[in-house]
Nucleic acid binder design. Structure first.
Length: 494
RNA sequence: CGCGGGGUGGAGCAGUCUGGUUAGCUCGGAUGGCUCAUAACCAUCAGGUCGCAGGUUCAAAUCCUGCCCCCGCAACCA
């Protein structure tokens, strides 16, 4: 009944500004959380920031700050975005939190049996003070573009985590859906990727190169490499290992990640958990990326869409609507201002906003706002709930819009305005009208229920307006039409 | 022969696993209706060789074979 559930989001690296992909993470997790809470579950919803690593240290130095002071400022940008998309998270982890640091060091010690010392060899740029991948080195013809000097072949001492030891267990967990990767094609993709086995992962760096990180227990010359540190957040924030409450929420029910970080969450992370003797998360929800006009979003192209701007110009629910319905939950999606505005005007304004207004207006006009007893909405919600369970949120919303459409059709068929003409002289007509309007309100209230996870403010508005049996004075128009990026078809011609 | 996803009316998609009514939905277009409503809503119509070529079958968008095209990924990216 009130089962305890746990959902997590990826923790972004705080050296940049938050982007739309981060917003998508928070939104999806929030939708799931609101849905589960509506169904009576107790949900913990984690968010956080990843704050270690040499890139942070470098950025901080540029700004003339020590790394911690720097991240104390930048993590706020992410917190602001989480709040802005309405994410009702319960736990915020920063990898620089003392508890997280202690806990990660504990984890390191627990994983000792699977940690060994080795050498990492690769292309190194002295200017960057970091290694680059072979791919990147090749792409740059062996010369660092930032420092204009050739990469050197270097090798350094590292600790390695024996991920390879867990290959079979991880594969089995994925194949049997003990840890279910959603959607299915991502699961296939990853199984294919690991078919030759998991490769051991370097999990530390010499301190001289990377001084901003969690110290390796028992070896002052090394600090931990970020992934071990970052992935651990999902359990450290629950209080692992010292606060027993963590056991009530782990394993996570859903971990939300982008497709770009699937391999870390499907390979390294389960290996860590096996090494610790912990259960694996039940599901990994892998969402896609958001393109702009079918082109990748990139700073170079300059087509970055700022989620803040969308929310500022159209409102929070409008943002949540587009990104939950028109960006498929489990695949890549496309955003353009034209598409966004078009769906806002036709679907939110013309369909939803308008039908709410026409019902409340008729009630006010014909019955002085008195609704009476609204019957239970009778639309079959099976498809909606199935879609929610399958983590296909976009399909769930589609169902809601079918209801909006059928309500409009119903109103058109029974023509309350015709019935209203006879009310004065015909008691039967009055009863009929009341019944029709009450039925419409019942449908709207049901729509409101289904919108709770997606458009909290709108759902709240619907409930407040209709649930008391008397219309609560309607204020401003819901979703007024906006023409900033598209043409108003009704605009007078110049 | 690296792996995966996809190619369905102008646009975006569903349907393909478990072949079978006139291939469905949303947006856009045209026409008509209505007037309660945010010039919103409702109805009807136009528009599709279901990537190409073969094959299996009474019957294929759906199964099989070959080919073409587009898009991701290809491991330390935090």
């Amino acid at each position: 009944m009130d089962k305890k559930l746990y959902i997590t989001t990826a923790i972004p690296y705080v050296n940049g500004t938050p982007h739309i992909g981060n917003a998508l993470d928070y939104l999806l997790a929030d939708i799931w959380t609101r849905y589960q809470k509506q169904n009576g579950h107790d949900v913990r919803f984690q968010v956080g920031t990843d704050e270690h690593g040499n890139k942070i240290a470098a950025k901080a130095a540029e700004a003339g700050l020590d790394p911690k002071s720097y991240t104390d400022q930048t993590y706020l940008n992410f917190e602001k975005l989480m709040k802005k998309v309405g994410a009702g998270y319960t736990d915020f982890v920063r990898t620089t939190d003392p508890h997280h640091i202690q806990s990660v060091q504990y984890i390191w010690q627990q994983l000792q049996p699977y940690i060994y010392k080795g050498n990492y060899e690769g292309w190194y740029c002295v200017g960057c003070e970091s290694f680059v991948s072979d791919k990147e080195a090749t792409a740059n013809n062996g010369v660092c573009p930032d420092h204009n000097q050739p990469y050197q072949r270097l090798s350094e001492a590292n600790y390695y985590f024996k991920t390879s030891a867990f290959t079979d267990k991880v594969r089995e967990a994925i194949e049997t859906n003990q840890m279910q990767i959603v959607p299915e094609f991502r699961k296939k993709e990853f199984l294919e990727l690991m078919k030759d086995g998991l490769q051991d992962v370097s999990i530390s760096r010499p301190k001289k190169n990377l001084s901003w990180g969690i110290p390796v227990p028992g070896d002052p010359t090394q600090v931990m490499y970020v992934w071990l540190d970052a992935l651990a957040n999902y359990i450290t924030i629950l209080g692992y290992p010292d606060q027993p409450a963590w056991k009530e929420y782990w394993p996570a029910d859903v971990q939300i990640i982008g497709k770009d970080i699937l391999r870390f969450h499907a390979g390294l992370w389960p290996s860590m958990l096996f090494g610790l003797g912990l259960e694996l998360p039940k599901k990994l929800l892998v969402h896609g990326h958001i393109n702009v006009g079918n082109t990748k979003m990139s700073k170079t192209i300059g087509n970055i869409v700022d989620p803040n701007q969308v929310i500022d110009e159209y409102g929070l629910d409008a943002f949540r609507y587009y990104f939950s319905r028109h960006i498929p939950t489990l695949d890549d999606g496309d955003f353009t201002w034209e598409k966004f505005e078009n769906s806002y005007n036709t679907e939110l304004a013309n369909d939803l906003g308008n039908v709410i207004r026409r019902v409340s207006s008729m009630l006010t006009r014909y019955q002085a706002g008195v609704i009476g007893e609204a019957p239970q909405g009778e639309h079959d919600m099976g498809a909606y709930h199935a879609a929610m369970e399958n983590l296909e949120f976009n399909r769930a919303i589609d169902e809601v819009w079918l209801m909006v459409k059928s309500l409009n059709q119903y109103i058109e068929n029974v023509k309350p305005w015709e019935i209203a003409k006879n009310v004065a002289k015909d008691a039967e007509a009055a009863a009929h009208l009341a019944e029709v309007l009450a039925y419409s309100v019942g449908a709207l209230l049901q729509i409101g229920d289904l919108l709770v996870p997606f458009l909290p403010a709108t759902a709240d508005n619907i409930h407040k307006t209709f649930e008391t049996g008397v219309i609560v004075a309607s204020e401003a128009v819901l979703f007024p039409r906006i023409y900033k990026h598209t043409t108003d078809p009704n605009a007078p011609k110049a």
